[in-house]
């Protein structure tokens, strides 16, 4: 079940939940950054009021988001909607390779 994408003044946002057992550890973080880098839009990931660059594996790791954490993805740019759809699907698929 994916949450709806919302339009805000700061761009598009969507809520995602970490459902894979290990949380956002190296492998899922690498995959998330890798996929985010495919988009031209600026992409951010926020947790507890801290927002980081979703294209940076180091930034993602620094959140230390455990299983069960809810985060907000935010995108600003032409392909932001597409990016948010794609990245939130990664979360719900537990970052499995297709």
């Amino acid at each position: 079940m994916q949450e709806p994408i919302e339009e805000t003044q700061e761009g598009l946002t969507v809520t995602v939940c970490v459902v894979n057992d290990q949380g956002l550890h190296a492998r899922p973080a690498a995959r998330l950054a890798q996929e985010a880098q495919k988009f031209g839009s600026e992409l951010f990931l926020a947790m507890d009021g801290m927002e980081v660059d979703a294209k940076s594996i180091l930034d993602i790791l620094s959140l230390a988001a455990a299983k069960g954490t809810r985060l907000t993805l935010r995108g600003v740019g032409a392909d932001a909607r597409h990016a948010l759809e794609h990245l939130s699907a990664l979360f719900s698929n537990r970052f499995r390779e297709e």
């Binding site: 190296a26 492998r27 973080a29 690498a30 995959r31 950054a33 890798q34 880098q37 660059d53 294209k55 940076s56 594996i57 180091l58």
Partner: peptide, 10 residues
């Protein structure tokens, strides 16, 4: 793979 991502990390 994660090392590659670190290598190109902004």
């Amino acid at each position: 793979n994660s090392h590659m991502m670190i290598c190109q990390d902004p």
